[in-house]
Amino acid sequence: MGFLDFLKPRKLPPPTIEALFKLPPVGVTMEQLGLQPTGMSGVCFRSIGARDFEQMKVDMVNILNNNSFPAHYEVSKDEYGFTWVVIDSNSMSDGVSNVYLASQLLLEGGFGDHILVAVFRFDKADQPVYWIYNYRRARFYPFAPRGKERDAALEYRLRMLVMEALPVDTLDYWFPIWGIPF
């Protein structure tokens, strides 16, 4: 126990998903910096019990197959024990809608404590630039992995370009997520 523990709030802010829809309108601005949307997106959450997980998968299939935003999707686990629902949509805005539905399913299923981030992939000169949505802060931040490094200058410039239209988190929260499975 550190002596500064009393500064910590008792509760985490609840995850929210409405701000996800602020991403599609800035797509045009991003293209000015050479970013191409890929339609690839994903939801990352802390793994849940096996039975819940199977049920969730069934529900996810139903939701993602029976809406008006056709997509392919895959479920995988990563080395940190987090589950990824990777969604391949026809466009970035379809991807946002699908991520919204998948997130809603998780929140309604009572897995709100497990949900971590949503990730949207763009490409710049064939290299990925991700916009990561932090559910609890209801803000986005950019992540441009380049090998084992990240291109923080590019990320900062992206931030300056979109920060008036998109809620971008402060630099202190730009946690990397290495090995995003798409």
Binding site: A152, E155, L171, Y173, F175, P176, I177
Partner: peptide, 12 residues
């Protein structure tokens, strides 16, 4: 400014 950006993976 660059030094403010955290280096630990979010999941860790």
């Amino acid at each position: 400014q660059m030094e403010r950006i955290p280096s630990r993976d979010l999941r860790s």
